[in-house]
């Protein structure tokens, strides 16, 4: 296949970026999207042009490191028949002669580092605010001391599959990180172990979400539609319920 690529090139965080066009021959259908970019980078290296920077690691759709916007959709969601990460998108979904536009996640909370790589540390800061259960190593009771109802445990699992890639933010017209934040809320709120800190957790994470520069949710659902792990939109409902309920009850903590 012959493919025309238009790729966002930006030297660093503060530089002005622009789309650059490249021609790529010898693309095979079996290649993954990132292998196609590898091929481009080999070609650019040969031509003494600096390769395109893009984040990637496991290349099996689980680490959440990769992610670019392909033809206006995170992870090329609408070029793929199923929910996917960029690394699991394959070139058989494209045709000979296609023009493919590749851009980084665009959001104020995710500044571009270089070309297609962005800084997603804001996600870590949201987790730091309260996305955990406070249990020190060695202090855990026997695993069977608290049975967890299967239905809730399954719900918790569905939310816990979030890979933190940031596609939800990239797709959202408001650059909101609500799907990501609510996935952690829903994961921990559906387990018995998550109950003691439930109220303070949702308050702290929601506050951290806003303070890190993400926008508000307007319930349009673009996030869930592009999510490679199909985190359900209901998670946001859970977050909203938990937050509103928590505001009417003390969190048992007197100092911040």
């Amino acid at each position: 296949m012959k493919i025309t690529l238009r790729i966002w090139r930006q030297a660093n965080k503060d530089a002005q970026g622009k789309m650059q066009t490249y021609q790529l021959d010898n693309v095979s259908e079996e290649m993954s999207f990132l292998e196609m970019l590898d091929l481009l980078n080999e070609q650019l290296t040969d031509q003494d042009v600096e390769p395109v920077a893009f984040d990637h690691d496991c290349r099996e759709g689980i680490c959440g490191m990769c992610g670019v916007v392909i033809n206006g959709a995170p992870h090329g969601r609408y070029n793929s028949p199923v929910a996917t990460t960029t690394c699991q998108l394959h070139m058989r979904n494209f045709k000979d002669g296609d023009v493919i536009d590749i851009e980084p996640w665009r959001a104020g909370a995710f500044p571009v580092i270089k070309d297609l790589a962005v800084d997603r540390s804001a996600f870590d800061r949201i987790i730091q605010a309260g996305g955990y259960i406070s249990v020190n190593t060695g202090s855990a009771p026997d695993a069977h001391s608290t049975p967890a109802p299967k239905r809730e445990a399954d719900k918790a699992f569905d939310a816990a599959t979030c890979i933190g890639c940031g596609a939800c933010v990239a797709a959202c017209p408001n650059s909101s990180g609500m799907l990501f934040t609510s996935a952690k809320i829903a994961h921990l709120a559906n387990l018995p172990q998550g109950q003691p800190e439930r109220r303070l957790r949702v308050k702290a994470m929601v506050a951290a979400h806003d303070e890190n520069g993400f926008g508000g949710c307007t319930n349009v659902g673009e996030c869930a539609a592009v999510c490679p792990k199909s985190i359900p939109l209901e998670s946001i409902g859970q977050l909203n319920r938990d937050l509103i309920a928590s505001l009417f009850r003390g969190d048992g903590r007197t100092i911040s």
């Binding site: 206006g72 665009r106 959001a107 017209p173 408001n174 307007t218 539609a225």
Partner: peptide, 30 residues
């Protein structure tokens, strides 16, 4: 206030128009 937050959060636009099939016309024009 939310509009302002969203404008601040969405720092730049996509060059290739964002493809957002979930967003109804009603939602887009709120």
């Amino acid at each position: 206030s939310l509009w302002r937050a969203a404008r601040h959060a969405r720092s730049s636009k996509y060059v290739h128009a964002a493809h957002r099939p979930e967003q109804t016309y009603a939602a887009r024009t709120m």
